[in-house]
Simulated scan of single mutants.
Amino acid sequence: MRLAVPALGLLLTLVTGAASLAPIPPSNRAALIHERLTQANLNRDHVMVVAHRAGWKKDGVTVRAENSFAAIDHAVSTGVEMVELDVRRSKDGVLVIMHDETLDRTTTCRGKVAEQTLAELRPCQLVLEGQRILTDEHVFTLEEAMLHARGRILINIDNKLEPEALVEVTDLARSLGMADGVLLKLAVWNAERLQLARDIRRAIGPDVAFMPILADDAVTEPSFIDRTQSALDAPAAELVHWYRDAAQPLTPNGGPLLSPLARATAVRNNTHLWINTYPIADRPEGMVAGGRGDYFALATGRPEEVWGFFVDRGVTIIQTDEPEAVIAWLEREGLRRPYDLTN
């Protein structure tokens, strides 16, 4: 579902002006966000917001290149706590920021990211999806993204590589003094996968935040959720509540991952519960949130049936394509606390 498209002039202003106009908060902001991330039980009165692909949309329309510096800057300026960035590797082994396996959709280039060196990727100019509007940004590395975000906002790493690449990401973050500036994650669905997550957890070390992704097509027992959160010393658990039934498009209760017992395990382990309300292309609205997605909230004017529904069930982190709208609603409901940036 797409909402009204803004005038081209406004769109171009948003695309070209966001990076240069966004205010730069004091450099202690990321440390304060990290503190709230790692102390869930002390901060359940504040709902954190994560900008999917760094925050590329407004009212359903693409207004910034995804995974761009402009998107990071805009997220910072609007109060977002974390930007999700997608990580791949160039032919010569450099970690770069790109969602797709290929360059076709989001840049002026064509072909697979993994088949081109960093030097070959550099000229690829970022564009707005669908509209092919050019920006003044080019493909950049994970290191450059970390340096751009450092001190201002946390980076939620969506790893498009092998799980072991998270160790490489950790080494890079630590070399830049950003061990507390990233959040890593891995999908966990059974005992074998949990053991892999534990091995990676040990390899990256306790100073870097690491969390499981739990989906309710495989994980349904609170005891497994409890064991996973405890074993990984996870500050959060990213929950996937699959949309299943066209006859009942909205989940009535949040599924097994948001049951009272599951929420109790989060409190026991000092862990945030995280839900994703962004859409997936060519899939039903709210595909990973039991049908309760961003554009149901906006199109119906009933945000309480989406963001409020999950907050009522213990969610304290929301990843969204509409961070401005989510933050505005949370603030109206008294579900945000300002960060003290004066010290």
Score class of each variant (00 low, 15 high):
residue 136 D to L: 15
residue 157 I to W: 01
residue 174 R to S: 00
residue 173 A to H: 04
residue 163 P to H: 01
residue 135 T to L: 13
residue 171 D to K: 14
residue 172 L to Y: 09
residue 153 I to Y: 01
residue 131 Q to P: 00
residue 123 P to V: 13
residue 133 I to D: 02
residue 161 L to T: 05
residue 172 L to F: 12
residue 157 I to K: 04
residue 123 P to A: 13
residue 181 G to R: 00
residue 177 G to E: 00
residue 151 G to Q: 08
residue 179 A to V: 07
residue 124 C to M: 12
residue 156 N to L: 13
residue 167 V to W: 09
residue 157 I to D: 01
residue 142 L to F: 12
residue 123 P to E: 09
residue 139 V to T: 03
residue 123 P to M: 13
residue 128 L to M: 03
residue 174 R to Y: 02
residue 180 D to V: 06
residue 161 L to I: 08
residue 139 V to G: 06
residue 128 L to G: 03
residue 131 Q to Y: 13
residue 138 H to V: 14
residue 136 D to F: 15
residue 125 Q to M: 14
residue 160 K to Y: 15
residue 129 E to L: 12
residue 135 T to Y: 10
residue 143 E to I: 09
residue 161 L to A: 08
residue 148 H to R: 15
residue 135 T to D: 10
residue 152 R to N: 01
residue 126 L to C: 03
residue 171 D to E: 15
residue 125 Q to Y: 08
residue 123 P to F: 14
residue 131 Q to S: 09
residue 129 E to V: 10
residue 176 L to W: 10
residue 146 M to G: 04
residue 137 E to A: 09
residue 142 L to S: 05
residue 173 A to E: 05
residue 131 Q to A: 12
residue 134 L to P: 06
residue 149 A to G: 10
residue 173 A to K: 05
residue 148 H to G: 10
residue 155 I to R: 09
residue 180 D to N: 13
residue 128 L to H: 00
residue 153 I to T: 09
residue 144 E to W: 02
residue 163 P to Y: 09
residue 168 E to Y: 02
residue 166 L to V: 03
residue 180 D to K: 15
residue 144 E to I: 07
residue 149 A to Q: 10
residue 177 G to T: 00
residue 144 E to L: 04
residue 179 A to P: 04
residue 155 I to C: 06
residue 160 K to R: 15
residue 170 T to D: 07
residue 169 V to K: 08
residue 180 D to S: 13
residue 128 L to D: 00
residue 140 F to I: 05
residue 175 S to F: 07
residue 167 V to R: 10
residue 159 N to I: 14
residue 168 E to Q: 14
residue 179 A to M: 07
residue 162 E to T: 11
residue 169 V to L: 09
residue 132 R to A: 13
residue 178 M to Y: 03
residue 142 L to P: 10
residue 154 L to A: 00
residue 128 L to P: 08
residue 146 M to T: 03
residue 127 V to T: 06
residue 143 E to R: 14
residue 130 G to H: 02
residue 142 L to R: 05
residue 172 L to T: 11
residue 144 E to V: 04
residue 166 L to A: 04
residue 146 M to Y: 05
residue 137 E to C: 08
residue 143 E to V: 10
residue 132 R to V: 06
residue 126 L to G: 01
